[in-house]
């Protein structure tokens, strides 16, 4: 039977910068490939002819296997819809963002938090242990993100909870993994090794410049500097023999934009060749905190430009690109945790939230955890976070990036502004695909 093929509606096809050839990306399969100009002619002529499947050339077969071309009968919109439903109905996994304390030793100039609550209460600690003990009997994966505040102001709570989580997971063959967002000030080599033992394998640590250009933005609550100590900690961690990833995050706005290149040079000197240290650059935003009217944020056009321009500078200096960038292009890879039904933020007083930013907003107070492990949940509020994506937006439904973000990259942004929350990666997909291509080449060389 003759087959007629079509190009997938979820393809993106961009020029390789500075040379011939194209980069193909498909958001339903996550595949990325390069083709030369002859192969592109084959690809573009595809829709003009019928082909026996058995007679597809080797290249067209590979394109087919990776989702770049699909049978003309294939209902791709239905496939995208099914992907979205499967994510919404996933009950086999759980992701908790846990705040062992909401206190912080830093007072960063652009922070959105109010530091209202200190360390996690005994009642909440008991509740979390009991909740995981119960959940572990019916899930296959548990993922914990240690967050705060500054989580390393409460290392004993992290150790206590981790031991209990690991015990529950081991007893039920549940795959356990953890990551941590920390300012790095208390992440000594000894503390780091202890955390590796507790299965914390991914860390995000922020540096905003070298020395004073970092310190004026990310200082201690008493105003003292922090850069020197964080760098000393990172150097000590570099000497640890182990499997882990450190995302070095750089937050930029108009104030420190000029200081980022010298920081990239420094990071290259310190970590070039060690693929465990990776680069993640993000623009600062007005995230709803008390300092919003004093933050010199870049406008969207400027932020989009500098984000990938600076990231490219880092890659050219030999600093590996954060894996989170490539992962965000996978199917469901750009869906925010706040939009996932199996994800929850647990604050230190036992309140449950969907979003880790708007902690004080009523729509984001979605429940409470009790000491016996039971969770009171407001399903109506939760659905505001999980059901406000592609199902409400016809533009998202027809977008090539739909399988990746499902209209749910940031439900908070959509709620607050009424605008579509397109991810940074989608807005500059040409630059991002070229970055991933260059990164892949640098690994293979």
């Amino acid at each position: 039977m003759a087959h007629k093929w079509k190009l997938s509606r979820f393809n993106r096809n961009v020029q390789i910068e500075g040379q011939g050839g194209r980069i193909l990306y498909n958001s339903l399969t996550g595949a990325i490939a390069t083709i030369d100009s002859i192969e592109e002619i084959q690809l573009q002529s595809l829709s003009k002819k019928n082909d026996e499947k058995g007679k597809l050339s080797e290249i067209l077969s590979t394109l087919c296997e990776n989702g770049f071309i699909v049978s003309e009968q294939q209902d791709e919109l239905l496939q995208a819809s099914q992907l979205h439903k499967s994510l919404k109905n996933d009950t086999s996994t759980m992701h908790l963002i846990v705040m062992p304390t909401e206190a912080c030793n830093f007072r960063c100039t652009y922070c959105y938090q109010s530091f209202q609550h200190g360390s996690m209460s005994e009642e909440t600690i008991r509740g979390l242990k009991n909740a995981i003990k119960n959940f572990a009997q019916r899930i296959t994966h548990l993922s914990i993100s240690w967050f705060g505040g500054e989580p390393l102001l409460a290392p004993e709570i992290i150790a206590d909870l981790s031991a209990s989580f690991l015990e529950s997971c081991n007893a039920n063959n549940v795959v356990y993994g953890a990551d941590m967002s920390t300012n790095g000030y208390h992440l000594t080599k000894e503390r780091f090794q202890e955390l590796l033992g507790l299965h914390v394998r991914r860390f995000m640590i922020t540096l905003d410049g070298i020395g004073e250009s970092h310190d004026r933005r990310r200082k201690l609550s008493g105003g003292q500097s922090t850069y020197g100590r964080i760098i000393e900690n990172l150097k000590a961690i570099r000497d640890v023999d182990g499997l882990f990833v450190i995302d070095i995050r750089i937050n930029f706005d108009e104030q420190n934009l000029v200081n980022v290149p010298e920081l990239l040079n420094e990071l290259s000197l310190l970590f070039k060749g060690d693929r465990r240290f990776q680069l993640l650059i993000r623009p600062v935003g007005c995230w709803g905190g008390p300092q919003d009217d004093r933050i010199p944020v870049c406008d969207r056009t400027s932020a989009d430009y500098h984000l990938w321009e600076l990231t490219n500078q880092g890659i050219e200096l030999g600093i590996p690109l954060s894996e989170t960038i490539g992962d965000s292009l996978l199917p469901s890879g750009s869906v925010c945790y706040a939009a996932k039904s199996n994800s929850m933020v647990v604050s230190s007083n036992g309140n449950l939230h969907k979003c880790s930013i708007a902690l004080d907003e009523d729509t984001n107070r979605v429940g409470k955890i009790h000491s016996n492990g039971n969770m009171d949940l407001d399903m109506e509020k939760i659905s505001m976070w999980t059901d406000s994506g592609e199902e409400t937006d016809t533009v998202c439904q027809s977008c090539y990036y739909r399988p990746s973000c499902q209209g749910n990259h940031c439900p908070l942004y959509r709620m607050r502004t009424g605008k579509r929350p397109c991810p940074h990666e989608k807005r500059k997909i040409k630059q991002v695909l070229n970055l991933l291509w260059r990164e892949a080449n640098s690994i293979n060389i």
Partner: peptide, 8 residues
Amino acid sequence: MKLIRPAI
């Protein structure tokens, strides 16, 4: 044609 990342 060169695959940078195959379909999952």
